[in-house]
Design a binder for these strands. Sequence first.
DNA 1: ACAGACTAGTTTGCGGTACAGACTAGTCTG
DNA 2: CAGACTAGTCTGTACCGCAAACTAGTCTGT
Lengths: 95, 95
Amino acid sequence: MRDLDRIIHEPARLQIVALLAAVKEADFLFLQRETALTKGNLSSHLGKLEETAYVEIEKTFRGKIPLTVVRLTPKGRVAFTEYRKALNGLMRKSQ
Amino acid sequence: MRDLDRIIHEPARLQIVALLAAVKEADFLFLQRETALTKGNLSSHLGKLEETAYVEIEKTFRGKIPLTVVRLTPKGRVAFTEYRKALNGLMRKSQ
DNA sequence: ACAGACTAGTTTGCGGTACAGACTAGTCTG
DNA sequence: CAGACTAGTCTGTACCGCAAACTAGTCTGT
């Protein structure tokens, strides 16, 4: 059954995934600014996306300040494509 | 902020609203078959859509058997259009 | 006449989860 | 040394989706 992937469907994560699909790589602050999520929230959503291996999170340093870089994995990219297809399938019915 | 309408965003209800946008009028059984939801589930989702006045529910009889007909209200139609716009806005970023 | 299936629900209880806000920990800036 | 910044984790609340059980009436077959 072509169902909507709940992990991606959640608006906060949909934003994140859509952004990552576009930019290929983003740091924590950029994502926070774009999505307007609180730190805690963004952190836990990224955690969930990492659990399902849709993103990979690289913790590095910019000088001595921690820098978290997030990237979509191939699996995540596929899932997002599938999600778009499922969504289009739903939407197509409505016209 | 152009956010996604949570009432519509829920997959089950998204299906319902998309179907109603297409057919203009549908009975309970048709919706149940199309969405593959349980009765209880469909019932409560319809209840939620009715609360927000996105659909109107007319309870009539086909002969002596109860027949529930569901229709999208103008408000519901507008909300769905807005939803599609918001979604397209999100998706556009990802290419 | 009666069992079983059908329409169309309501109610209940479980489990999951999004979200804000408080807390931690280290760093740089004035 | 205070205050702001990066990047979190943790906690508690409050909601919500979902299945399953229950209600209530009707029709179908034997």
